[in-house]
């Protein structure tokens, strides 16, 4: 327990150092947020009515929460690329030698990293959004509490999914293609580029229950009010996906660890 806590704190300290990087990322997030909000608002105005429950202000709020979440949630898979390198370069052995289960080490560090991004990136982003275009956030405290929980699970879920792709490097020589494919899927179906509710009905059956939706759209829905009436269902489904992927990752590590062969060292 103590080790887990220290790893989490270490992840936090390590990633709060890059202040210039945080500022630079925010500049990019703001620009993309403005473009994405423009497109959603233009669509709603051209449609002449709210689209799939999104009126103008809901759409804008959705965009800014999403841009803010890009700080804490590793949606683009930095951890997947890193894991690929760790396997290739043999650093994975260091993780396996430590007395804490590797999955717990990585998850703890990731949660620490995510926490370090909440104050410098998540909160200022919402402030910027509120100043630029206005926002509508819930007034009851329960929404925020559930949101924080969903954020934590989303952080772990996204990280684990990327780990799994990165760990493919234990079996195949070049993982690059899988990582790029994962990036495309995560961008499209997580609710980053377009709300999952906006997809055509025939596609929603799958998209709405996929793990990708729970990496991003689920926490957003809790703040925009679109989850109202089925908050517990969403949270339960999200948690189930996170636990499933964690179990899968543990299995992959066990099978892969038996196959892993490291030269020298």
């Amino acid at each position: 327990m103590r080790a887990t806590w220290e790893l989490t704190a270490g992840g936090f300290r390590r990633h709060s150092r890059y202040r210039m990087g945080i500022l630079a990322a925010m500049v990019a997030n703001i620009m993309f947020g403005m473009i994405r909000a423009s497109l959603l608002v233009a669509t709603i105005e051209a449609a002449g009515a709210p689209v799939a429950g999104y009126d103008r202000l809901t759409a804008i709020t959705y965009v800014w929460i999403g841009q803010a979440l890009l700080g804490p949630i590793d949606l683009w898979g930095g951890s997947g690329w890193e894991m690929n390198n760790r396997v290739k370069q043999g650093d994975l052995v260091t993780d396996l030698l430590r007395p804490v289960h590797p999955l717990l080490q990585w998850t703890a560090q990731e949660v620490g990293r995510a926490a370090s991004q909440v104050l410098p990136r998540f909160v200022p982003m919402l402030v910027v959004g509120a100043l630029l275009t206005g926002l509508r956030l819930p007034t009851e405290p329960l929404s925020y509490l559930l949101f924080l929980w969903a954020l934590l699970v989303a952080v772990v879920l996204s990280h684990t999914a990327w780990l799994l792709v990165g760990l493919l490097a234990l079996w195949v020589v070049e993982v690059r293609g899988y990582l790029v494919a994962m990036m495309v899927v995560a961008n499209l179906f997580s609710g980053l580029l377009i709300p999952v509710q906006w997809f055509p009905t025939w596609a929603r059956g799958v998209i709405d229950h996929s793990p990708f939706r729970h990496m991003f759209q689920t926490p957003i829905d809790l703040l925009t009010g679109l989850a109202d009436g089925r908050r517990l269902v969403l949270l339960a489904e999200q948690l189930a996906w996170a636990l499933t992927l964690l179990a899968l990752a543990a299995l992959v590590l066990r099978r892969g660890g038996r196959k892993l062969e490291v030269q020298g060292g």
């Binding site: 500049v27 990019a28 403005m34 473009i35």
Partner: peptide
């Protein structure tokens, strides 16, 4: 250490350039 800030123009520009400008704020 600020590569991402330049992305606002390069990739932001590519994103904005690929849509009808009339839809932008």
């Amino acid at each position: 250490g600020a590569r991402q800030a330049a992305n606002a123009i390069t990739y932001g520009g590519k994103y904005a350039g690929g849509v009808p400008g009339g839809a932008l704020f």
